[in-house]
Design a protein around this nucleic acid. Structure first.
Lengths: 357, 357
DNA sequence: TTGTATGCGTTATCAC
DNA sequence: GTGATAACGCATACAA
């Protein structure tokens, strides 16, 4: 260590001082001063490689994203990053581009690079949990953000989908909509089922009858905007079926945009002749005209929580045989009302008719 | 090295074989076999820390993004990643969240972690080139993607803004628009000036007269969607001014969405009563209704080019005193016609009047 | 209170 | 053809 030479002390003393190791208490103040000055003067930075080799720690946290281009992911990432920034840990972001083999490749790289924690942003169907086996064997703390992976070995952080589904239909109901079409997510997706439970719960509570002819499921395909295509296609199907509806509750925002496109092409304006509500609150929702009413997921918050969870495990972590609360953490969604939902005109007409016969 | 023990040979021989070093030619075939088997059997992976310490190479390429939530960035990132995936290099993505001090912090971290190359996705005003001094001192090859940084020490890759500006106004012109409003980018931004040059060039060529009362500049503020706000506000200003226009050419897609919102609030429908064209082709452009006509930047391509450039430098790189073509590389934009632009109704009326008086 | 010696896992150089 | 040895830069146990 050149700082040692420059300050005239031995490498070990310098090391002790610069790391503020326990032993540094016993080092003379003057010595510390000199060493620190020398270090500062030389612009000394400890060599990460050597340090890592010695300590067997990488100070890197892997962040595996299924598709960076999915707007759902980026805000979560920002949450993670902002939590990690003041820390000595470096997030290493990897983007699987929706392709399983890339995901696998990256997981290998992460293990090789000895990441100390893993956060997965998994809005995804094809995610094969067995891929995480290696990670789990090495006792790397892992958390999945955004969709429920239903695995006992990892912590999940996600939005309260049931509450979200409830809030979405409640919003439409309050606006006077009774004939509501539903485009649910792929059947295999736990999220989809749970949201539907929320919807059913609301319907039951308020005595709203759901028309089975207005309920459709997205196919379980993957791809950047399979949601959009699905929403477009299914809405066309519904329109052709001739069933009447005054609002559509879409599985997520991408789907909702597909719905809006289909409605528009069929000459039905949003929100005047049909309301549409999504789920997620992707950035585009605030930008488009009309703005998309949607159920806001606290994406930043989920990212922050995930990062905090990992940090906690890392800091006090591994000494105790802690195998703590691996439950799922649910965060509350928020209703964001924008331009794509409006009062049901027909119902208003009916009501005012009723009032003044 | 445990593989050595297991196979009964010395660490050095094992190392030579597993790395397929030049010397491995002189190693007996049987020996190679045994060593490889042992390695495979043990699931051996070389320790990156030790390797890096020894070789002084990190095999990491820094990717500095100004704001991950900016949809402009993500496709570029995907281009970079796809180029780097089959490589031994790991992209390390860092997101400055639009904040200079984070940017600085990350640059420091990158230097400490000994990144071997740097790609900056800089759609940004506040980027202070002096921050790159340290990087440049260490001879780290650097390329900036997306906006012209006008620095002599780094390579720039960006879209041909002049051609893009030209194509945008040409599209509007061909649709019959003559009274066109312009919302240019911030004056300080080189891109903005160059796009304007393309526009002027077209106007001159075709004898189109640009009305100065319809030309506005976005303020030079930063932030995730300052473009949207600016577009909204300036469009309101134009509307209040009473000047007539049948189309708006916006600096970028975000701005265009602000324009559309303002027009819509003023009761002018897009594209029926006013066409709008953007620039960039962010993912939302294809999703919104109407789809946004825009000038497509080859973002993936730019990312790929940037990564390829860095790789090239790294592979054959540093031995020769190459200080090669540090010019700016321009990539051709493409016009993407979607629903937000349409024929100028008034002009059609006029023309048909002229034909059948 | 400070210095010396050792090892982390690799690999390059040289000797056998 | 193969093995011993040193060194990359740091941090720790132990000696002084």
């Amino acid at each position: 260590m050149d700082v040692a030479q420059a300050s005239g002390f031995s490498p070990s003393t310098a090391s002790i001082v610069l790391n503020e190791a326990p032993l540094s208490k016993y080092v003379a103040a003057k010595t510390k001063q000199k060493i620190r000055e020398a270090a500062h003067h030389l612009g000394y930075h400890p060599d990460v490689f050597a340090r890592s080799l010695r300590s067997q720690r990488s100070h890197m946290i892997g962040v595996l994203v299924i598709d960076l281009a999915d707007p759902f992911c980026t805000l979560i990432l920002q949450g993670i990053e902002s939590k990690l920034l003041p820390t000595a840990y470096l997030p290493v972001i990897m983007d699987a581009h929706n392709q399983p083999h890339q995901l696998e490749r990256y997981l290998e790289m992460m293990v090789e690079r000895r990441i100390e924690g893993l956060i997965t942003v998994a809005n995804w169907l094809l995610f094969d949990i067995s891929l995480l086996k290696d990670i789990h064997n090495r006792q790397i703390p892992t958390v999945v953000v955004g969709r429920d992976l239903e695995s006992p070995t990892v912590k999940s952080v996600l939005v309260d989908n049931e509450a979200g589904g409830y809030a979405a239909i409640e919003h439409l109901f309050e606006l006077g909509h009774r004939e509501i079409a539903f485009i649910r997510g792929p059947k295999r997706l736990g999220d989809s089922r749970v949201r539907w439970r929320g919807i059913q719960c609301f319907a039951k509570t308020r005595g709203l009858k759901l028309n089975p002819a207005l309920i459709y499921d997205l196919p379980g395909t993957t791809g950047s905007n399979s949601g959009f295509d699905g929403g477009l296609r299914l809405t066309n199907t519904i329109l052709r079926s001739g069933e009447r509806f005054t609002a559509v509750l879409a599985f997520d925002d991408l789907t909702a945009y597909g719905v809006i496109r289909a409605l528009s092409e069929a000459g039905r304006r949003v929100p005047e002749s049909c309301s549409v509500i999504g789920f997620d609150d992707i950035p585009a929702a605030a930008l488009s005209t009309p703005g998309l009413s949607t159920i806001q997921q606290p994406m930043r918050g989920m990212g922050e929580y995930a990062a905090a969870y990992i940090l906690e495990h890392l800091e006090q972590g591994s000494e105790q045989g802690i195998e703590p609360l691996l439950d799922t953490y649910l965060m509350a969604p928020t209703l964001a009302v924008r331009g794509s939902t409006a009062k049901n005109q027909k119902l208003e007409a009916i009501e005012s008719d009723a009032r003044q016969p």
